[in-house]
């Protein structure tokens, strides 16, 4: 008996994009790109089975550096586009990549509703707490007091809390990573891709050019992996309490997971044991057409 392998096993290298990243040397985004490439290779995914969707920003250039199908869409709109892709072809694995401004600022509305719908997406937010591509303005996740080009006397607005926001809005896999810990990132990404629902990983991804406050050194001295704390990801209250801590201890790891909530495409009756709508022949059947006309008579 011969076994025909449809695809050869791939490595992280096979998920390199057509061009190398043009991020600043030392940018936190490199680590996430590397961790993602290693994880999809480990999971045995093929490039054509993945769509990587992004918005606009430094981190949204990710799909160009990643060797799968990709969509580099409008600022803030990646989750809306990705939902359309998933609902039209539920067989695809979809990664959504972007930054804090893209996801929590201009795209905030879609963040809320994608979480509520529990769309089966893996959302990787490279959170650098600054607008980098526009050369350093305050972001929705910038800390109070932070001086930027648009807040030269210090930011007075309180930052969004991506973790509690995601949990409260209904995301079913909510985690935080740090570019300084690729091993943990790989574990979190693997869990997110395997999770059937909306998985959010907020990643501290330092901007080495414009954010002098939230540096690698800042995080290295503070991050505490939840997996070492005996945290139960099924306990949303504990997850929220730990997510609210921001001082000497800042938790990373899997805050919350609820695998019992069905993802949106599984709730859609037309997809029950059916191919994706993008693969259904376009013309109406005679029965369908006749019924439409009969109802008009």
């Amino acid at each position: 008996m011969t076994v025909e392998l449809r695809h050869k096993p791939l490595t992280a290298k096979d998920f390199k994009g057509k061009v190398d990243p043009d991020w600043c040397p030392g940018c936190g985004d490199f680590a996430l790109l590397r961790a993602t490439q290693m994880t999809v290779a480990k999971l045995g995914l093929q490039p054509h089975e993945i769509v990587c969707v992004s918005g606009i920003g430094c981190s949204s250039n990710f799909p160009g550096f990643f060797g799968s199908y990709g969509m580099h869409t409008l600022h803030g709109r990646a989750l809306a586009v990705a939902t359309g892709v998933k609902m039209a072809n539920q067989n695809l694995t979809i990664l959504v990549t972007g930054g804090d401004g893209d996801g929590y600022g201009i795209g905030g509305n879609h963040f809320t509703h994608t979480a509520r719908r529990n769309v089966d997406l893996t959302y990787l937010v490279m959170n650098n707490q600054i607008y980098g591509l526009t050369t350093g303005q305050v972001s929705p996740s910038s800390s109070v007091g932070m001086k930027t080009k648009s807040t030269p006397f210090g930011n007075v607005e309180r930052p969004v809390n991506p973790i509690t926001s995601a949990i409260m809005n209904g995301a079913t896999y909510v985690a935080r990573g740090f570019s300084g810990n690729i091993k943990q990132l790989r574990t979190l990404i693997e869990g997110a891709i395997n999770h059937p629902g909306f998985a959010v990983i907020d990643v501290f991804s330092p901007c080495v050019t414009f954010n002098r406050d939230n540096t690698y050194a800042f995080f290295r001295g503070r991050v505490v992996p939840l997996e070492k704390e005996g945290h139960d990801p099924g306990d949303w209250k504990s997850a929220c309490e730990r997510a609210m801590e921001w001082g000497d201890r800042i938790y990373t790891g899997l805050f919350f997971q609820d695998p019992t909530v069905a993802p949106l495409h599984a709730l859609e009756p037309i997809l029950d044991d059916a191919p994706p709508v993008c693969q259904v022949p376009e013309p109406l059947t005679a029965t369908q057409a006749d019924r439409i006309i009969q109802r008009m008579m």
Partner: peptide, 17 residues
């Protein structure tokens, strides 16, 4: 905004949106 972008995402898969 979400409508138009979602429809674009769907259309990209080849479905008529």
């Amino acid at each position: 905004i979400g409508v138009a972008n979602m429809a674009i995402g769907a259309a990209h898969t080849g479905v008529r949106a």
